[in-house]
Design a protein around this nucleic acid. Structure first.
Length: 459
RNA sequence: GGUGGAGUGGCUGAGCGGCCCAAAGCAACAGCCUGCAAAGCUGUCAACCCACGGGUUCAAAUCCCGUCUCCACCUCCA
């Protein structure tokens, strides 16, 4: 079986074949760095991280572009009295920190909108020449896409122009309320640094033109996959498609949209202010558990966040990690993709059915534990290799890296454990229990094994 | 008004015509282990009719029609 992906433009599951055999080019809409990341942004980035990893495992090289929109109305507003460029950089760092913590791979290219103004000007010029864009009728430096000139407008989201609500307020020189800005004229109250010289006057780019220009810059006039959150489908992606195809490009072969994260059934979003922040998440569980939880629903399904969700994920992940810890030396991890079970591959090939893939991991973990307890070395080895390979594909390997604990604490704990074991041997259980309690208060959980007492620190 | 999506055990969440008397996880319960625990492992439990009502089919959670409820998008959002 080969990979099938749900293409949201055709609204069908399609067999995925790269335009160039063995090589996949994908463009993913990254964040507008206007405020700190929340769970929803992380999910989106993670979905395409998983897709990329799976493509690589199945023998593709992957060029992945994930942009940073670092100039935008909200960036300027939220920067307040600060230099917006500095502000944007800081927010971008917040995103990068979170991506790193979640073990999301760096994209091949991470272009910033402000670095590609020239590309955007060129694309806009071309659209004007082709009669698909125009400078504002009020003589300002605003430039708009002429939706009426493009009969395919609405093709991505299956909408008809006459049914659309469009901009209702002032036109700023629009011919139609449905027309959207390619460039926005510099406003007097905005910093000079947020304006570029264009053939139409001082202006800054609109949101949609950025992605069209950057995708073309790095991937050319056609590429395999365009991804992003479901809330970007319209207008952002519809407009991207209109611009690029009106300019004569074929653009994306597949459109992928990940569903959103909800909280109490309602969409998590910047505008609603109900986002779960990185700080909140770190309190709820480990980054491994967060990654696991984000993967626990297929990417086109909503995922509802609640306080217990990360905790449940932590328990499920601990089961997998615990298996590897008790059966292998986790410091030496060699991965061999040849061990991936076919059921796992089938699940991944089926529009990235990660929950199904996780089920295969758990099934193998159980088989492995059984083999371990009955000392069936041959069966155990197979299960271990399979689990390691699967966990690696999902990027969960980092979850079982050892936490760094100070030598001082280690010695102290080992000393107390020794005292406790001595007390147990002397059948002084009151003393043994007292030490156990002491350790618990330090945040140390004991694990009495057959011959040895293991411990973990959760403080 | 338009365009999409969803409703599956106590909870999360796969399955999308026969392998489904429905995967997996969490929770619960039991056993193993233990001085007793915890942790860990294993097992068991759970979906009466897979939102409701019709229909198609030899066969439906899965397809069709209708109804109800919820969510998203319609020019700020991943």
């Amino acid at each position: 079986m080969a990979l099938e992906l749900f293409d949201s433009k055709s609204q069908t599951l399609r067999a995925f074949t790269p335009l160039t055999a063995g090589h996949v080019e994908m463009y993913v809409c990254g964040p507008t760095v206007q405020s700190a990341p929340h769970l929803g942004h992380l999910r989106s980035a993670l979905v395409y991280d998983i897709l990329r990893r799976w493509l690589m495992v199945t023998d593709h090289t992957v060029t992945m572009v994930r942009n940073v929109t670092d100039i935008d109305d909200k960036v300027l507003v939220n920067a307040g009295s600060r230099d917006w460029r500095e502000f944007a950089k800081e927010i971008e760092q917040n995103f990068d920190d979170a991506y790193l913590a979640l073990n999301i791979l760096e994209p091949t290219h991470k272009p910033h909108a402000t670095e590609h103004i020239e590309d955007m000007i060129n694309l806009t010029k071309k659209l004007i020449n082709l009669g698909h864009a125009y400078q504002a009728t009020d003589g300002s430096a605003n430039v708009f896409f002429d939706t009426a000139s493009w009969p395919n407008y609405g093709e991505l989201t299956n909408q008809k122009l006459e049914n659309m609500e469009g901009e209702e307020d002032a036109t700023f020189g629009r011919k139609s309320p449905n027309d959207f800005a390619l460039f926005k004229a510099h406003k007097a109250d905005e910093p000079d640094t947020a304006a570029w010289k264009t053939p139409w006057g001082l202006a800054r780019p609109g949101w949609h033109i950025e992605c069209s220009a950057m995708a073309k810059h790095f991937l050319g006039e056609s590429f395999d996959i365009h991804g992003g959150g479901l809330d970007l489908r319209f207008p952002h992606h519809e407009n991207e498609l209109a611009q690029s195809s009106a300019a004569g490009d074929r653009f994306a072969n597949f459109w992928l949209h990940n569903a959103l994260i909800t909280i109490s059934g309602q969409k998590m979003s910047k505008s609603l202010g109900n986002g779960v922040s990185v700080e909140d998440l770190e309190k709820a569980g480990s980054w491994g558990a967060i990654r696991y939880w984000l993967l626990s629903a297929q990417y086109r399904s909503n995922l509802d966040y609640s306080e217990s969700s990360i905790r449940d994920a932590q328990a499920a992940l601990d089961r997998i990690v615990g298996f590897l810890k008790r059966t292998t030396n986790t410091k030496q991890i060699e991965i061999d993709d040849q061990y991936l079970p076919s059921e796992f591959a089938e699940a991944m090939d089926s529009d990235l059915n990660v929950p199904g893939a996780l089920a295969v991991i758990h099934e193998r973990v159980r088989a492995g534990n059984t083999a371990f307890d009955s000392n069936n070395q041959e069966a155990l080895k197979l299960c271990v290799e399979q689990v390691k390979a699967m966990v690696h594909v999902l990027g969960l390997t980092f979850a079982y890296q050892e936490r760094r604990i100070s030598e001082e604490l280690t010695n102290q704990v080992n000393d107390l454990i020794q005292q406790r074991n001595a007390a147990k041997l002397a059948k002084d259980f009151a003393r043994a229990d007292q030490i156990r309690l002491e350790l618990e208060e330090m945040g140390v959980t004991l694990k009495d094994m057959k011959d040895i007492t293991m411990w973990s620190f959760n403080g």
